[in-house]
Simulated scan of single mutants.
Amino acid sequence: MNKLTKFYGLICDYIKEENVLLDEPIRNHTYTKLGGKADIFVTPETIEELQAVLRHAQELEIPVTILGSGSNVIVKDGGIRGITVGMGKLTSITASGNVISAQSGARIIDVSRMALEHSLSGLEFACGIPGSVGGALYMNAGAYGGQISDVLVMATAIDKHGTVRFFEKEELALGYRKSMFQGSDYIIVEAEFRLEEGDPERIKAKMDELTEARESKQPLEYPSCGSVFKRPPGYFAGKLIQDSNLQGKRIGGAEVSKKHAGFIVNIDHATSSDYLKLIEVVRDTVKKKYDVELETEVIVLGED
């Protein structure tokens, strides 16, 4: 009996069998609709189930990869070995006074809508961010002048042994598209946001304005991983790419969006290899033309 078979037998004592999938195509779980297969894809419904996954994986020395909503990742064509944990069923959102708590699998868009329902202001900027709460905190996601660190109070995470730890905002080293969680063994399971009381009509008007701006400027009609590159100091990545005449540049089924140059879209059954090759073409071209190094915002997982 190999380790994965043993893990499957153990974890099905804790988690419904329909939430433990073998050889699951990752493209079913990413916004790009790309990615090979996960050996085992597990979607825990509670923190306790997640702890059981981590405990047994640790005992059997099987690697674990965490996948949030799949909005800001490219999974390579060879897929992911070991156990992939999808956080998409940990979606509880609660409000108390001017504080909203949300599990990491909840969509940050839904948290912004909960804020509106309770006449709370501060998360309007997040109304169009397609990722999960965990992913948004992991990247300190932002848009339209706001970012997660503006409203975050604390985070709850667990380590690879399943031990829970609480982090104050000041401990998280939040910066532009970065946090302490990058490169750490901690897995975000919940975030707490403190907002301000506001006028619901004004909050809704702002959200409507930002939604319209997003829909008019971004290529939402195609699968994509969102904005591919971080903003280089003193520049806008999309403008540099546009001025390099790269809009419409295509490798396989991946294309630099003609609508917004900061996006690479899957227009015709692209592979992850198509995507990654096109990213390198864009980086090389901008470097040669403007001597600006574009740093990717998207996270790359898996094997070739």
Rank of each mutant, 00 (worst) to 15 (best):
L4A: 10
F7Q: 04
L10N: 14
I11V: 09
C12Y: 08
I15P: 08
V20T: 02
L21K: 11
L21V: 04
L21W: 00
L22V: 15
P25F: 05
I26S: 01
N28A: 12
N28S: 10
H29T: 06
Y31N: 05
G36C: 00
K37P: 02
D39N: 15
E45C: 11
L50N: 06
Q51S: 12
A52Q: 13
A52E: 13
A52S: 13
V53F: 06
L54A: 09
H56C: 07
H56A: 04
E59V: 03
E61L: 13
V64A: 09
G68C: 07
S69T: 00
V73C: 03
I74S: 10
I74M: 10
G82M: 06
G86Q: 01
M87W: 05
T94K: 12
S96Q: 15
I100M: 08
G105W: 01
I108M: 02
I108F: 09
I109S: 05
V111C: 12
R113T: 03
M114N: 15
L116N: 10
S119E: 09
L120S: 09
G122M: 03
E124H: 04
G128V: 05
P130N: 08
G131F: 08
S132G: 12
V133Q: 04
G134S: 03
G135F: 06
G135R: 09
N140S: 11
G142N: 11
G142I: 01
G142Y: 03
G145Y: 07
I148F: 03
L152Q: 02
T156E: 15
I158F: 13
V164I: 13
V164R: 13
F167P: 08
E168R: 04
E170D: 14
A173H: 15
A173R: 15
G175Q: 06
K178E: 14
M180H: 12
M180T: 09
G183Q: 09
D185I: 00
I187S: 08
I188H: 03
E192L: 00
E192P: 01
F193C: 03
E201L: 12
E201F: 13
I203R: 03
M207H: 07
M207D: 05
L210R: 04
T211R: 14
A213H: 10
A213W: 13
Q218M: 09
P219Q: 00
L220K: 14
E221K: 10
E221I: 10
P223G: 07
S224W: 08
F229K: 06
F229P: 01
K230I: 00
R231N: 10
P233R: 09
G234D: 01
I241K: 01
S244K: 10
R250P: 04
R250M: 10
G253S: 01
E255H: 11
K258G: 15
A261R: 08
A261C: 15
I264F: 06
D268T: 02
T271R: 12
S272A: 15
S273P: 07
L276K: 12
L278D: 05
V282F: 08
V286K: 01
K287C: 05
K289D: 13
K289A: 01
L294Y: 11
E295T: 13
T296M: 12
I299E: 15
V300G: 12
D304R: 14
